[in-house]
Nucleic acid binder design. Structure first.
Length: 136
DNA sequence: TTGTTTTGTCTAT
DNA sequence: ATAGACAAAACAA
Protein backbone atom coordinates (compact mmCIF):
# COMPACT_ATOMS: atom_id res chain seq x y z
CA UNK A 1 0.00 0.00 0.00
CA UNK A 2 1.22 3.48 -0.78
CA UNK A 3 1.35 6.41 1.57
CA UNK A 4 -1.16 9.08 0.50
CA UNK A 5 1.30 11.98 0.41
CA UNK A 6 4.39 13.70 1.76
CA UNK A 7 5.10 14.52 5.36
CA UNK A 8 6.77 17.48 6.91
CA UNK A 9 7.81 18.08 10.48
CA UNK A 10 8.41 21.34 12.33
CA UNK A 11 10.65 21.45 15.36
CA UNK A 12 11.57 24.03 17.95
CA UNK A 13 14.29 23.66 20.58
CA UNK A 14 14.73 20.07 19.53
CA UNK A 15 11.10 19.24 20.09
CA UNK A 16 8.50 18.43 17.51
CA UNK A 17 5.75 21.04 17.50
CA UNK A 18 3.91 20.13 14.33
CA UNK A 19 3.49 17.24 11.92
CA UNK A 20 1.85 17.90 8.57
CA UNK A 21 0.46 14.98 6.59
CA UNK A 22 0.06 15.56 2.88
CA UNK A 23 2.28 18.62 2.60
CA UNK A 24 3.87 19.57 -0.71
CA UNK A 25 7.33 18.62 0.35
CA UNK A 26 9.05 16.36 2.79
CA UNK A 27 11.09 18.35 5.25
CA UNK A 28 12.28 18.19 8.83
CA UNK A 29 15.04 16.53 10.88
CA UNK A 30 16.17 13.31 9.28
CA UNK A 31 15.97 11.07 12.37
CA UNK A 32 12.40 12.09 12.99
CA UNK A 33 11.33 11.59 9.40
CA UNK A 34 12.93 8.18 9.51
CA UNK A 35 10.89 7.17 12.55
CA UNK A 36 7.75 8.30 10.83
CA UNK A 37 8.59 6.36 7.70
CA UNK A 38 9.20 3.26 9.78
CA UNK A 39 5.84 3.74 11.39
CA UNK A 40 4.11 4.20 8.04
CA UNK A 41 5.63 1.04 6.70
CA UNK A 42 4.47 -0.93 9.73
CA UNK A 43 7.92 -1.44 11.22
CA UNK A 44 7.41 0.79 14.23
CA UNK A 45 4.58 1.22 16.70
CA UNK A 46 5.73 4.08 18.90
CA UNK A 47 7.91 7.15 18.70
CA UNK A 48 10.96 8.18 20.66
CA UNK A 49 11.19 11.89 19.81
CA UNK A 50 10.21 14.65 22.22
CA UNK A 51 7.23 16.82 21.50
CA UNK A 52 5.82 20.06 22.73
CA UNK A 53 2.06 20.15 22.62
CA UNK A 54 0.35 23.47 22.20
CA UNK A 55 -3.33 23.82 22.84
CA UNK A 56 -6.01 24.89 25.26
CA UNK A 57 -6.40 22.92 28.52
CA UNK A 58 -9.46 21.19 27.15
CA UNK A 59 -7.69 20.19 23.95
CA UNK A 60 -4.82 18.75 25.95
CA UNK A 61 -7.22 16.66 28.00
CA UNK A 62 -8.75 15.23 24.83
CA UNK A 63 -5.37 14.56 23.25
CA UNK A 64 -4.05 12.85 26.38
CA UNK A 65 -7.07 10.59 26.39
CA UNK A 66 -6.61 9.75 22.71
CA UNK A 67 -2.97 8.89 23.33
CA UNK A 68 -4.11 6.03 25.57
CA UNK A 69 -5.81 4.19 22.72
CA UNK A 70 -3.62 1.17 21.92
CA UNK A 71 -2.12 0.45 18.51
CA UNK A 72 -4.60 -1.14 16.16
CA UNK A 73 -7.71 -0.30 18.19
CA UNK A 74 -10.32 2.38 17.75
CA UNK A 75 -12.71 4.31 19.96
CA UNK A 76 -15.63 6.52 19.14
CA UNK A 77 -15.99 10.24 19.73
CA UNK A 78 -18.74 9.55 22.22
CA UNK A 79 -16.63 7.13 24.27
CA UNK A 80 -13.96 9.79 24.68
CA UNK A 81 -16.58 12.42 25.41
CA UNK A 82 -18.19 10.33 28.10
CA UNK A 83 -14.90 9.78 29.87
CA UNK A 84 -14.19 13.51 29.90
CA UNK A 85 -17.73 14.54 30.69
CA UNK A 86 -18.23 16.50 27.50
CA UNK A 87 -19.96 16.08 24.14
CA UNK A 88 -18.81 14.17 21.04
CA UNK A 89 -19.03 17.35 19.02
CA UNK A 90 -16.53 19.04 21.31
CA UNK A 91 -14.16 16.09 21.04
CA UNK A 92 -14.20 16.28 17.25
CA UNK A 93 -13.61 19.99 17.49
CA UNK A 94 -10.48 19.43 19.58
CA UNK A 95 -9.17 16.60 17.42
CA UNK A 96 -9.57 18.64 14.27
CA UNK A 97 -6.89 20.95 15.67
CA UNK A 98 -4.45 18.22 16.56
CA UNK A 99 -0.98 19.54 15.65
CA UNK A 100 0.68 16.12 15.96
CA UNK A 101 -1.15 13.43 14.01
CA UNK A 102 0.41 9.96 14.41
CA UNK A 103 1.96 10.96 17.74
CA UNK A 104 -1.53 11.81 18.95
CA UNK A 105 -3.34 8.98 17.16
CA UNK A 106 -6.51 10.79 16.25
CA UNK A 107 -7.01 8.37 13.36
CA UNK A 108 -8.02 5.82 16.02
CA UNK A 109 -11.09 7.87 16.84
CA UNK A 110 -14.04 7.14 14.59
CA UNK A 111 -17.69 8.01 14.59
CA UNK A 112 -20.21 5.54 15.87
CA UNK A 113 -21.51 4.91 12.38
CA UNK A 114 -18.76 5.36 9.85
CA UNK A 115 -15.35 6.88 9.84
CA UNK A 116 -15.74 10.43 11.06
CA UNK A 117 -13.37 12.98 9.62
CA UNK A 118 -9.68 13.69 9.32
CA UNK A 119 -8.01 17.03 8.72
CA UNK A 120 -5.41 15.70 6.31
CA UNK A 121 -8.09 13.86 4.34
CA UNK A 122 -9.89 10.59 4.83
CA UNK A 123 -7.38 8.80 2.60
CA UNK A 124 -4.90 9.12 5.41
CA UNK A 125 -7.30 7.94 8.04
CA UNK A 126 -8.18 4.83 6.07
CA UNK A 127 -4.56 4.14 5.30
CA UNK A 128 -3.55 4.38 8.94
CA UNK A 129 -6.39 2.26 10.26
CA UNK A 130 -5.74 -0.44 7.66
CA UNK A 131 -2.04 -0.37 8.37
CA UNK A 132 -2.51 -0.79 12.11
CA UNK A 133 -5.13 -3.45 11.75
CA UNK A 134 -2.85 -5.47 9.51
CA UNK A 135 0.14 -5.02 11.77
CA UNK A 136 -1.51 -5.38 15.12
C1' DT B 1 -32.88 6.06 4.50
C1' DT B 2 -32.97 11.55 5.16
C1' DG B 3 -33.96 15.66 8.15
C1' DT B 4 -33.97 18.08 12.49
C1' DT B 5 -32.44 18.99 17.16
C1' DT B 6 -29.14 19.01 20.78
C1' DT B 7 -24.53 19.53 22.15
C1' DG B 8 -19.57 21.66 24.28
C1' DT B 9 -15.88 24.21 22.82
C1' DC B 10 -13.30 27.45 19.96
C1' DT B 11 -12.66 31.64 17.29
C1' DA B 12 -13.79 36.09 15.90
C1' DT B 13 -16.49 39.84 16.35
C1' DA C 1 -21.31 39.09 25.44
C1' DT C 2 -22.73 36.89 21.45
C1' DA C 3 -22.82 34.45 16.99
C1' DG C 4 -21.34 30.87 13.94
C1' DA C 5 -18.56 26.80 12.98
C1' DC C 6 -17.41 21.95 13.84
C1' DA C 7 -13.89 15.29 12.44
C1' DA C 8 -21.11 13.68 16.37
C1' DA C 9 -25.18 11.49 17.98
C1' DA C 10 -30.03 10.62 18.83
C1' DC C 11 -34.33 10.73 17.26
C1' DA C 12 -38.62 11.12 14.15
C1' DA C 13 -40.78 9.82 10.12
Amino acid sequence: MRVPGNISVQTENGKVVKIILGSNETEGPEEILREIEEYLSGQRKSFSFQVEIRGTPFQKRVWEEVRKIPYGETKTYSEIAKKLGTSPRAVGQALSKNPLPLYIPCHRVVSKKGLGGFSAGLEWKKYLIDLERARK
